[in-house]
Amino acid sequence: MKQSAVEAVIRGLKKAGVSIVCYLPDSLFKELYPALDADPDIRTIQVTNEGEGAAICGGVFLSGKRAALVMENSGLRASVEPLARMGLGAGIPVVMLMSYRGDTGENNWWAVPHGITMEPVLKALRIPYVVEREEDRIERAITDAFELAYASYYHTAVALSGSIVR
């Protein structure tokens, strides 16, 4: 990720009022995680799996603070159980920002399943999402995801791909 894209993500998160980020680090967002750790306005919580991160974000929602779950899109699969229970069972929203592994341009065989499963899993959970491939759209995508999550009290997701992550 270019420094300018990292800054756009952090700008979007701050504009959306995010003060806590849960993450499990991945390679496409490699430069983003230390920048989040270093930001004085954001508390980062590194988790052992993304489902745990989703549940922590749900708890943060209940506190009145705003959280985001940042991860590779494979983490979506690890998060399905808590997302289904919190979102569909109780109306507790989680906003997710994920790197899009397995999109066109992918050059790792192991990442192909992530691309095949991401959108069908999001659709199965009826989670509104956008895929962004241009840096100048990042900030708006993040603030829009929070607007809808806090109107619907349901999850939303932003997947970043293309020139943003490669």
Binding site: G53, A55, I56, G59, V60, F61, L62, S63, K65
Partner: peptide, 12 residues
């Protein structure tokens, strides 16, 4: 989910 949610609430 219970203790993760409780921890998120505690963090907030």
């Amino acid at each position: 989910c219970v203790t993760p949610q409780a921890f998120g609430l505690a963090a907030g």
